[in-house]
């Protein structure tokens, strides 16, 4: 039974997973291929940075909340102070998140940042300050998302623990379970 379940398990949101990976891969691929074959720095810069910015927006506003149920943003309150907001679903919904979606989300987030670091080292070795500018922009966007979602994830784990504890201790859960068995 468990083996069959493992085989039948699949991505819950394949379309979102696709777009989550698409913009990262296209930014990296375009940068690598263009630096090898094209010499126009302006075109390389503009298209790569636009793809990285688009990836940043998609991860922050779409795939983050669909794949792992997290979202983060910054706003300024009425007193003029900067407040970072980290939003996550309640514990029950988080516990139901697809594990493969979550796995893909976090791994591609880290791998993209690692790829930009490696490309940055190559630019540094070849003393290309202008291409270092491209890598710097793309890397800062990736790291911003990693920091934001890592903070979200801490709160999300706390939510799951709270939900588990309340589910175990709540008397109404027992009555609902009994009624479920009765039905």
């Amino acid at each position: 039974m468990s083996t069959q379940q493992e085989v039948t398990e699949n991505y819950a949101n394949p379309k979102t997973c696709f777009f989550h990976v698409l913009f990262k891969a296209s930014a990296l691929a375009f940068y690598i291929l263009s630096t090898l074959f094209v010499n126009n720095f302006v075109i390389i810069f503009v298209i790569t940075v636009l793809l990285a910015a688009l990836d940043f927006w998609v991860v922050k506003n779409v795939s983050g909340r669909i794949l792992v149920g997290l979202r983060w943003w910054n706003e300024i309150n009425d007193e003029g102070e900067s407040v970072w907001k980290f939003e996550c679903l309640d514990g029950e919904s988080l516990a139901r998140m697809n594990k493969k979606d979550s796995w893909l989300f976090w791994w591609t987030l880290y791998l993209a940042a690692a790829a930009w670091i490696i490309l940055g080292i190559f630019s540094l070795i070849r003393l290309q300050a202008d291409y270092l500018l491209v890598v710097g922009v793309c890397l800062s966007l990736s790291i911003a998302n990693i920091i934001g979602f890592t903070k979200c994830n801490k709160d999300a784990k706390k939510n799951i623990q709270d939900w588990t504890r309340s589910a175990l201790l709540s008397g109404s859960v027992r009555s609902h379970l009994q009624s479920a068995f009765g039905v």
């Binding site: 407040v83 970072w84 907001k85 980290f86 939003e87 996550c88 679903l89 309640d90 514990g91 029950e92 919904s93 709160d155 939510n159 709270d162 939900w163 309340s166 589910a167 709540s170 109404s172 859960v173 609902h176």
Partner: peptide, 29 residues
Amino acid sequence: AAKLPFSAAVSAPTSASGSITVAIASSGL
């Protein structure tokens, strides 16, 4: 029916802990 006690139970510890930077939002359901 089951949603309400879960939400209430979850929100109570949050307010007790005094975490004001976390906005816990319910799902679409």
